[in-house]
Design a protein around this nucleic acid. Structure first.
Length: 446
DNA sequence: AATCATATCAACCGCACGCCG
DNA sequence: CCGGCGTGCGGTTGATATGAT
């Protein structure tokens, strides 16, 4: 295993990124966009290969990344999606705003897998371990299409996934929606229907439902408990798993024209997702942003997610308040069935979460983000004064309340954003100081 | 306090694919 | 058609953090 070909030409740095490198890359991309990744390191003055820069941007520096632990809903969604998509992490990530494939992959390998096994579920097949061990799972003849899996086992029987497909409503993409209409809050579990009713619920799904609905009483927290805090609410800007980003020689206007100083290149254009998940309808596609700069401070507008730093606008997702109408135009989407949803209030509490470390992790969760914030502050050598609402934020209960279906409507009439507001209101805790500092570093505003 | 085990996460790597000349 | 190039994806590794003994 040698260096990637692009790294042969010159001695390039590897390993962890330093804050200086982050600053360079962030500053460069925010000013010019990445364009051709291979040229980014040179232009940004980095001793890295373009691939490394791209990875760093996607997995860490992107401003729309959601920080913090995965919520139970996200975990549930990951499991459900994995049952259908297998290890197609990028496609799974496309359904989880602000989450990266790498992040999801890590979560799966480190946590969810284990939880599933503890529950007697084979994470590869999503079937009961006993069934798998007894060899009840016949390998179809066309199993050759299945993904490879570590240890020789099939990570996922994609043939099975194929078999599931007929139960997934796969509409044709609606170009007009892709192009113009704002979407409901994509990525929320409510955005996906797998099966229209119980009669079409897959065996896998039934299994999950049966299993976890009955088991949730004994487990109320997640291995990585989380509410929605820590969600820096830049709506998912599909970072285009398949989008040919560099095709645009003149990356123009990130996010949207109203959102300075960032510009959005094609990577963030909503249309790009159609190449990622052509079977997905617009209802789960990123909204045409509507990001808007704001001059309000977090404490002034805790629910908007928009604020400014020394007049440098930070932005929020253009959380549409009329998403119901938006959603109405995408009724043919893949959506989690509503009344019998895998994510109904019962299932939301099934909690794979029987981790014995829940208390500990809850404690960690309550202060998450701080250590890294300190690092950045140290790096910047400028005390970063968090808004009082951040500094004094009270750790929110991890799962003070399981979302009921009324809070998590699947018809899209209640935006996820609004649902969140029914929880303890999102304060500035949504915004990670690290993110602020990144931009501070990038724009030299501090 | 020291050591070991485990968990977590960032990053690397090879490969596949699409584009383009 | 072919090969080079750039990009994206998924598997894997290695460093670090955390917990247990």
């Amino acid at each position: 295993m040698g260096r990637h070909s692009c790294c042969y030409k010159q001695k390039l740095r590897k390993g962890l990124w330093s804050p200086e490198e982050d600053e360079k890359l962030l500053g460069h991309i925010t000013k010019y966009g990445h364009g051709c990744w291979s040229s980014v390191p040179k232009q940004a003055g980095l001793q890295r290969c373009g691939k490394s820069c791209r990875l760093r941007w996607i997995n860490y520096l992107r401003p729309d990344l959601k920080r913090g632990t995965f919520s139970q809903q996200e975990e549930n969604l990951i499991i459900e999606l994995h049952a259908v998509l297998g290890n197609r992490w990028s496609q799974i990530a496309a359904q989880l705003p602000g989450r990266t494939d790498n992040e999801i992959k890590n979560l799966w390998n480190s946590c969810i897998k284990k939880k599933l096994r503890q529950r007697g579920i084979d994470p590869n097949t999503h079937k009961p371990l006993s069934e798998v061990e007894n060899g009840e799972e016949k390998v179809p003849a066309d199993m050759s299409n299945s993904e490879k899996a570590p240890g020789g086992s099939k990570e996922l029987n994609l043939v099975k996934a194929e078999n599931l497909k007929p139960q997934v409503v796969i509409p044709e993409p609606k170009p007009h929606l892709l192009a113009a209409e704002p979407y409901p809050l994509e990525g929320s579990p409510s955005s996906i229907i797998i099966g229209n009713n119980d009669s079409t619920t897959t065996p896998t799904k039934k299994f999950f439902l049966d299993r976890f609905v009955t088991s949730h009483e004994s487990s109320t927290s997640s291995c990585r408990p989380s509410n929605s805090e820590g969600y820096f609410p830049l709506q998912q800007l599909n970072y285009g798993t398949n989008a040919r980003l560099s095709a645009n020689p003149n990356p123009s206007l990130w996010f949207n024209q109203n959102c300075r100083p960032f510009e959005m290149n094609s990577e963030y254009n909503t249309g790009s997702i159609s190449t990622t998940l052509p079977s997905m309808s617009s209802s789960i596609l990123p909204a045409p942003m509507g990001f808007k700069p704001s001059v309000s401070l977090p404490s002034d507008s805790p629910s908007t997610g928009s604020f400014s730093i020394n007049r440098v606008p930070y932005w929020e997702a253009g959380t549409s308040s009329n998403s119901s109408s938006c959603n109405s135009g995408s009724s043919s989407s893949i959506e989690l069935q509503s009344n019998n949803s895998f994510f109904d209030n019962s299932v939301f509490s099934w909690g794979l979460a029987d981790c014995s470390t829940s208390d500990k992790e809850a404690r960690i969760h309550s202060v998450e983000g701080e250590p890294e914030d300190i690092k950045w502050s140290e790096y910047l050598q400028t005390p970063f004064l968090l808004p009082a609402t951040i500094q004094n934020q009270t750790p929110q209960p991890i799962y003070s309340e399981i979302k009921s279906e009324t809070q998590f409507r699947t018809d899209g009439s209640t935006p996820w954003h609004q649902n969140q507001q029914q929880q303890p209101p999102l304060q500035a805790s949504d915004i990670y100081a690290k993110d602020l500092q990144r931009f501070a570093a990038a724009f030299g505003q501090f």
